[in-house]
Design a protein around this nucleic acid. Structure first.
Lengths: 222, 222
DNA sequence: CAAATATAATGGTATTACTATCACTTTCCA
DNA sequence: TGGAAAGTGATAGTAATACCATTATATTTG
């Protein structure tokens, strides 16, 4: 697909001015993805971002209240994109089990470039989500930010997959726990493979994360 | 057990002066656990810690190089304590399966107070590990810190449980992935139950995390 | 062309994370 | 018992961070 006439909609509480609405905004998104990947969340600052796009720090603050909000924005964008892929990927499948397997595939297999969104590098964004997304949740402000609805997309994805599981096996007791175990676990396995490889099973090939979690879900609900 | 004549040994790379060696050191540990729980890692500073123990910031810096190192120290302490509980809890079991179940119990059931270590509140420390420990890993310095051996205890625990699994079923392909899925997943479920309860299965009772992951491991390796 | 909007440029504040210095006190051991 | 060594307190200082505010200059739009 090329340059679809769709766009990812993000809650307007997450930005001051919609970055999609201007050229500078898009450059902010695009460069912040590169810089977050390069420097990590702690090393990343609006000053460095400003320097990278040739604008002052204050211009960035016109779009985002804080770097934390920017991170949430990007993570939300990511999950919205995943949801969109999940909806379109499962729509024409013939059974719930097929749909479930596709969903798990989307959640666990490596990300491929998607040229539909020019200013977003999904492969890099995935790397950021893998290594930084826990910082979105693990904050003293979680509850407040949850009330604001910042995690709605994420929760909706969990619900979707959970519903598929319940459709296949209505008696299975822990559909939500199973889904979050898969989603978070898959990212964690990728991170461990990169940084603590002795505690993964790296030899098991390229699709081991997908294979492991697919087997896990199938065994649990059967 | 009361005041056992054992102590948890932590790599001396993690501190400048051993906090176990002085009274002030022990108060630093004890208060930092309380404050980290209260303020979260981001809100926690050595200045506030100093104020809480009635000492200047600079005294804290004589024990720990940075608050990041202090967090690693505490997380290491926690995993060392868990390892100790695992070793003593499994030693007199009659089969590998029994040992495995005990290990999973220790990793997934709520923590109880342990009066063996007066200056450490294990229940609070567990809360800190649940909500802040990902920050130990998710840093641009992971690889370096891994090389320094800071994560050795954690990796050893994974290895122990993984070995039990391989002893029970030598053909199971993903023992490491299974173990890390359980360890990290169990903490995550506790955190989600507290802050994003819609994506857990809270109704399933008090031991749902233990039951879920025990069932998961047993089904996977059988 | 005027009005509105977007951006640049600059400066400022409070806080953080950390370092350095000096003085006082306690311990220890020769 | 006297004197070094170790532990702590008190104070000051620095560079960087995360932000905010103001003014001036472009750029767009109606």
């Amino acid at each position: 697909m090329h340059n679809l006439a769709i766009s990812i909609r993000i809650s307007s509480d997450l930005f001051i001015k919609d970055p999609e609405s201007t050229d500078l905004g898009k450059r902010i998104i695009s460069k912040s993805i590169e810089l977050l990947d390069e420097l990590g969340f702690e090393g990343f600052t609006f000053k460095k971002l400003g320097a990278a796009i040739g604008s002052p720090e204050s211009s960035v603050y016109r779009y985002f209240e804080s770097k934390h909000k920017l991170l949430i924005y990007l993570v939300c964008w990511y999950w919205s994109w995943i949801e969109y892929k999940m909806v379109f990927g499962t729509i024409n499948k013939s059974s719930d089990l097929e749909r479930l397997k596709t969903a798990i595939e989307i959640l666990t297999k490596p990300i491929k470039v998607d040229n539909s969104f020019i200013h977003v590098n999904e492969v890099l964004l995935n790397k950021i989500v893998v290594s930084e997304a826990t910082k979105v949740f693990h904050t003293k402000a979680v509850d407040e930010e949850n009330d604001q609805g910042y995690f709605a997309v994420y929760k909706r994805i969990v619900q979707r997959v959970s519903d598929l599981i319940s459709a296949i096996n209505p008696d299975y007791k822990y559909p939500n726990m199973l889904v979050t175990t898969v989603i978070e676990g898959a990212h964690q396995q990728v991170y461990f493979a990169d940084h603590l490889s002795s505690i993964t099973d790296k030899k098991r090939g390229k699709n081991r994360v997908y294979n492991f979690y697919t087997e896990l879900v199938c065994k649990m609900i059967s």
